[in-house]
Amino acid sequence: MIDTRLYLAQRISALIMVPLVIGHLAVMLYAVQGGLTAAEILPRTRGSVFWFGFYGVFVLAVSVHAAIGLSSVAREWLNWTGTRLRAFAVLCCLALAVLGMRAVLAVTGL
């Protein structure tokens, strides 16, 4: 099911996410020091164009990446093919992108 376009999209989204995942891990390691509180997180992120860009790109990349990965698994482990498989991939991508962007908007308040 993987053609050149999907293969490149999978690798490019992965490469984009390498620094983002490392950044996200660093943020988490920093943020959990002394326990998590909403009062601590939100002032850092609210109104920040930087974090909006950081997590906005992250969400879009992961939507593409996860949709391709999940449809590969659906092809091989569930034997899905054709229209059903394509619809599943598109649905995964859209659902993750919409939910993810909502979360980014909520946390940055932009």
């Binding site: 996860a66 659902a95 993750l96 979360a103 909520a106």
Partner: peptide, 21 residues
């Protein structure tokens, strides 16, 4: 790990969006 992360993400996103709603 890929499947597990993909399943976790919608939950993660939903919980974060509560900050607004």
């Amino acid at each position: 790990s890929g499947i597990a992360l993909a399943l976790f993400l919608p939950v993660h996103f939903y919980l974060l969006s509560l900050a607004l709603t």
